[in-house]
């Protein structure tokens, strides 16, 4: 169990605990300035991105202490407000039986980093009672929302997994889970910031992929599935290689393998990785 489970799991995985989908039915109302068009920082768009400009400066300066301080302060805030974790497709489908209502909405990351038009960008899922009043702050839901039945949502989730998107849960006011994302590197700000700057707004999942070198035929079907730079072909032995230390446990490589040569292990069953979130 990760630290979020220990705090909010009530004995199980925190994102399978129904309480975390219902705790905060109504957001704190934003009154005053916001209503009349509050100033926003255009460079802060995307999870954890408010400090990226400073982080890039710190990195260029070579001052590791500065970089660590930026991350520590930002994460302390993020873990109380807005962060995410990778989940498997099975877990995602279980969540779709817990959370309601379910809406398809546009992905803010790909909008601000790729300028993807709203109509091509309905790749996020907003969940919970807050969706009934999305029109109060429609900028978050540019292009509107599309309500789905749980069955439609599951079909859509399976399609996303098949196409190769990483699935994550996202909190909006810890521990309230308000979104499910289908992410990729580098279009997803959270994945980008985690991989390139080791910024832990996005936590690794509770599983880790492991290659069975006896079963792997070197067919290369899994190559290209990993969004975390953790999978390649060992050319000389002609076997897939998963960097387990870097694996986020999304399971995308596994569903592409025709030989059953990759399995998802429970992170906690691996002493060397059990605390690697």
């Amino acid at each position: 169990m990760c630290w979020v489970c220990e705090k909010y799991g009530n004995g199980e995985k925190w994102y399978l605990n129904p309480e975390n989908y219902a705790r905060r039915l109504y957001k704190v109302r934003k009154e005053g300035r916001e209503a009349s068009g509050a100033d926003a920082d255009p460079q802060a768009a995307g999870m954890g991105a408010g400090v990226v400009a400073e982080l890039v400066k710190a990195r260029i300066s070579g001052d590791l202490k500065w970089e660590e301080e930026i991350k520590r302060d930002a994460l302390e805030h993020a873990y109380q407000t807005h962060f995410g974790q990778v989940v498997t497709l099975d877990e995602y489908l279980q969540i779709l039986d817990i959370a309601y209502p379910l809406v398809k909405m546009t992905c803010g990351c790909r909008r601000v980093q790729r300028g993807m038009p709203d109509e091509e960008n309905f790749t996020c899922m907003g969940i919970g009672p807050g969706m009934y009043k999305w029109e109060r702050w429609p900028e978050t839901y540019r292009g509107g929302v599309e309500f789905l039945t749980p069955e439609e949502a599951k079909q859509w989730a399976m399609m996303n997994h098949k196409e190769g998107r990483v699935q994550t849960v996202d909190v909006f006011g810890t521990p309230y889970i308000g979104g499910l994302c289908q992410c990729e590197y580098p279009g997803c700000v959270a994945v980008r910031n985690r991989l390139d700057y080791d910024f832990k707004f996005l936590l690794k999942g509770h599983t880790v992929a492991k290659v069975d070198r006896e079963k792997c035929t070197g067919c290369k079907s899994c190559l290209g599935r990993c969004q975390f730079k953790s999978l390649n072909l060992e050319v000389y032995t002609n076997k897939a290689y998963v960097d387990m230390d870097q694996c986020f446990g999304c399971g995308l490589c596994i569903t592409a393998c025709p030989s059953g040569a990759i399995e998802l292990l429970d992170r906690e069953s691996l002493p060397g990785l059990a605390e690697n979130w």
């Binding site: 009349s36 926003a40 920082d41 768009a45 601000v112």
Partner: peptide
Amino acid sequence: VCGPTKIW
């Protein structure tokens, strides 16, 4: 990055 300068 291309973000909003105002939120309404």
